[in-house]
């Protein structure tokens, strides 16, 4: 596994040769690297290894039973399904918001641009209770929907909505810089060659932003899978129906089922490792694509 990570090119590896030459000149390599490794070991690596070691104290049948009981399986389906739908919605609307912010001008654009990062800055618990207040049967939005039989809070719909809120900035902020750097000459050439605006978008612009869009999608999805704070308020948390996997870990802990909590957490950790590697790979691909475009 470590081999796979190490084989990814270092970011900014273009500077490699210059940095290597200067390694003798600039002081502080040993102390900064030493401190970085010590800090990461104490805060991240040793605690994470506790999870792995604890998992290995379980026998295989115990582990399997903990991670594949019907209630846990239902939570995987909800967590991954809702994250997938939310990430897809965010791809569409994130691209739209990024496009509008880069290409058009309208009053209040700077405020809208700043507001995109709200889900990064707003604590998840606050987002959770305010979305619930909006969508519950007596809320601003909920009161108009409930008479029509549409329920958005306290069921899986609520999970999707919370995850759309959480994931939006990931897509916008990965697509936005790529759109800004896109070369208008290519579009002009396409138009000169007789392409309609839609053809230019789908054949020229879209392929150039596709890697960034995919990266944003993967980031929003990864964040959604692990999200807890905003979801638990709006989900209703009914077992088998609207219970997310992180909540399963917490309820197992509250019942002092440390082994079960650890087993489910290990599954989550392995999945987030794989998503991290995927995102790293996508970003490398994106850099190569944009690097090739400039050359």
């Amino acid at each position: 596994m470590s081999g796979a990570i190490a084989s990814l090119p270092a970011f900014g590896s273009a500077e490699g040769s210059r940095a290597r030459r200067s390694a003798r000149v600039l002081p502080g390599f040993n102390i900064t690297l030493g401190f970085t490794l010590l800090y990461l070991s104490l805060i991240v690596l040793i605690p994470l290894s506790a999870l792995v070691f604890k998992t290995f104290t379980l026998t295989w049948p115990e582990f399997w039973e903990a991670v594949s009981s019907p209630r846990v399986m239902a939570s995987y389906r909800l967590t991954f399904g809702a994250s997938l739908i939310a990430a897809l919605v965010n791809v569409v609307f994130g691209l739209l918001v990024a496009w509008v912010l880069v290409r058009y001008s309208f009053p209040g654009k700077k405020i809208v641009d700043a507001l995109v990062d709200l889900p990064f800055a707003l604590p998840t618990a606050v987002a959770g209770i305010s979305l619930t207040a909006l969508l519950a049967g007596n809320g601003w939005i909920g009161q108009y929907l409930e008479p029509h039989g549409i329920q958005l809070a306290f069921n899986p719909n609520g999970v999707v909505i919370a995850l759309i809120f959480i994931g939006l900035p990931f897509v916008v902020r990965t697509v936005q810089p790529v759109l800004e750097d896109a070369e208008k000459e290519l579009e002009e050439a396409a138009t000169c060659l007789g392409a309609t605006r839609w053809q230019t978008f789908s054949r020229v612009i879209f392929p150039s932003i596709a890697p960034a869009l995919l990266t944003g999608f993967a980031m929003a999805f990864a964040r959604g899978v692990g999200e807890y704070g905003s979801v638990i308020f709006i989900a209703g948390n009914m077992p088998m129906v609207s219970e997310i996997t992180p909540l399963i870990i917490i309820s197992k802990l509250e019942q002092y089922d440390y082994a079960g909590a650890t087993a489910v957490a290990t599954v989550m950790l392995v999945i987030s490792f794989m998503l991290l590697l995927l995102i790293n790979g996508l970003q490398t691909w994106q850099r190569q694509r944009s690097g090739g475009g400039h050359a």
Binding site: I46, P47, A50, L51, A222, G226, G229, P246, Y258, M268
Partner: peptide, 15 residues
């Protein structure tokens, strides 16, 4: 960034 916050809390309980 990619570890679920709940897992992050759990590992400290385990230590």
């Amino acid at each position: 960034f990619s570890v679920s916050p709940v897992v992050a809390g759990l590992i400290y309980v385990l230590v």
